[in-house]
């Protein structure tokens, strides 16, 4: 979801306040980046520069962390986040075929966002509901015991 200039300005102020409050705790970088990721939906260059400046560390450190952990993203995500579980339990029960179908339907691959900004497919290792394998989630909704043929109808709901 694209943020408006006002929203960005407000969120930036909030981020600065959050950093100010947390910068003296031991190991503040990750919690601050997690806050920023949650707030903006991604970590832009501007956001990373603010964090680097206020913590007094090179921005390469922030960027290194941002690109190391799967949770952080450098680009805004789509309106709907699809996670097709690729954990072992789902894999042995055909999770890969489900993912392939989703990718085919949307014309994007994992960790990409559709051109219209509607969907992002996210790499996921084990959503923790192995009893429902193979599983995918779209936002908060869980779809279990999937086959590739069910994918199209599910996507149509969004």
């Amino acid at each position: 979801m694209a943020l408006t200039t006002e929203q960005i300005a407000k969120k930036t102020e909030e981020l600065k306040a959050f950093i100010e409050e947390h910068k003296n705790m031991p190991g503040p970088l990750m919690p601050i980046m997690q806050y920023a990721q949650e707030s903006f939906g991604y970590l832009s260059l501007e956001t990373q520069l603010i964090i680097s400046d206020m913590l007094g560390i090179p921005v390469t450190e922030v960027y290194g962390v941002a690109t190391f952990y799967a949770q952080f993203s450098l680009q805004p995500k789509g309106d709907n986040i699809i996670s097709v579980c690729q954990g072992t339990a789902c894999y042995v029960k055909g999770g890969a075929a489900v993912l392939a179908e989703v990718e085919k339907e949307l014309g994007i691959t994992s960790n990409q966002t559709t051109q219209d900004g509607k969907f992002t497919i996210q790499d996921t290792r084990c959503l923790g509901c192995c009893g429902l394998a193979p599983v995918m989630t779209i936002n908060e909704d869980v779809y279990g015991k999937l086959t590739p043929s069910k994918v199209k109808d599910i996507l149509a709901k969004y």
Partner: peptide, 15 residues
């Protein structure tokens, strides 16, 4: 760049 000069213009990214 990072440890000696404390500049950090280059770093390690991705994994």
């Amino acid at each position: 760049c990072y440890n000696v000069q404390e500049i950090g213009a280059i770093g390690v990214s991705k994994r």
